Simulated scan of single mutants.
Amino acid sequence: MRGAVTQFLMDDMRIPSISIIGLGALGSVLAEALVSRGAVLFSIFSRDRATVQRITASLEVTEAGPFPGTAKELGELVFLTVPDSAITEVAERLIALPGSLAGKTFVHCSGNESAGILQPLGAKGGRTASMHPMQTFTPQSVPADFEDIYFSLQGHPGAMPVLRHIAGLLGGDALEINEEQKAHMHAAAVMASNYLVTLLDASTEAGSLGGLDKEKVQKVLLPLIQTTLRNIQSASFDESISGPVVRGDIETVKSHLKLLGRKPELRELYAVLGMETVNRAEGAGLLEDISTKQLRQLLSAILNHE
C-alpha cells in the first residue's frame, strides 16, 4: 500500500490522487488503465466485494470498500463510474460525508447526463464535471481501449486542465463541449455504436433468410464492414456510398424488398435506410432526378404500409 501520495509529473502537470466509485465495466478498466500510466489510485469503492478484492489484489490502493466513510478517504480527483440512475444518490451520499470536500474534483462518466447533476457537490466546495469516453466498454475491455479515442469534457472550467491531462495520460484526446453539444454527441454515439450492432445483426439475419447459417453470414460480411469503415476514415461519407440506390438500380431494390417480405421488420428497416441513402445521394448529386423519384415512391410504399 502507498502511504503519502506520490507526485508524478507529465507535461509539467502533477497527476492528482484518484478515487473511483463504481467498479463496473468502465470503472474497473479505468482503474487498471490509470495505474498502468503512473497514476496513484488512492481509493476504490463498490458494492461488489469480489471486484474490490480482485482490484486491490492486483493494484496498489490505499483505501477500498463499499463506500467512503469520510471525505478523507477520497482522492483529489473522484470518478463516479456508476449507472446514470445512481449518480444523484451517490452525490447526495458524498455530500453527507464527514469532512471537507473543498478542493476536490468530482467527475461522472455518463454520456447522457450533464455535469449539472453534480452541482450539489459544487455547493460544498468541489469542482464538478463530466468526462465521457467515446468508446464502448464491456467486461472484456482492456486499458488499450482508451487509446486514440475522444473524451467529451463538460463542466467547471477549473476542472478542464486536469481532465485534459487525464485524457492524454490514457492515450486519448479531449473534446470540450457545452451541455447542449454533449446531449447531441451522446445521441450520435448511441447511433454509431449501439445501433450499429443492431443494424449488423439485422444484416446477418437478412442474409440467413436464404438458408445460410447466421454465423457464416456474419463471417462473410465482416470484411465488407471493415472496408466500409476504412473508406469512411479516408474519404467523405458521400465518397463512401455505393450499392444499388446510388446506381439508381430500381429493380435490385425491388428484389430486396420482395425477399425481405418474409420479415416485415427487416423490410421496413431496409426501406428506412434506403430512403436516407436516397436523400444523401441526391444531396451529393449522385442520382438522376428520375431515379430519385422512382426510389422514393418504391420505398415510401413500404414505409406507409401501402
Rank of each mutant, 00 (worst) to 15 (best):
E73S: 10
Y270M: 11
T277E: 13
E89L: 08
D249H: 14
G207Y: 06
Q154W: 03
G75K: 07
K219S: 13
P83M: 08
I20V: 14
G75W: 03
A86M: 01
T81F: 01
E113P: 01
R280P: 05
I149F: 07
H305G: 13
F45C: 10
F137N: 10
G210N: 08
T136R: 10
M160F: 06
T228E: 11
H305M: 09
V29T: 15
S152D: 03
V78H: 00
E92C: 10
R54Q: 14
N112C: 12
E60G: 05
A167R: 08
Q119N: 02
I241Y: 06
A4L: 11
V190P: 00
L34C: 09
S141K: 07
E306D: 13
G116W: 02
G69A: 04
V29K: 00
E176T: 14
I290T: 13
P157K: 03
T128M: 09
Q218L: 14
A189W: 12
A64Y: 12
L30T: 10
M131I: 02
D249G: 06
L26F: 11
P161G: 06
A183K: 13
K293P: 00
T227H: 11
L80I: 08
G243P: 09
G285K: 00
L222V: 13
E63T: 00
S114N: 04
N112P: 00
N178Q: 11
T204P: 00
G155M: 10
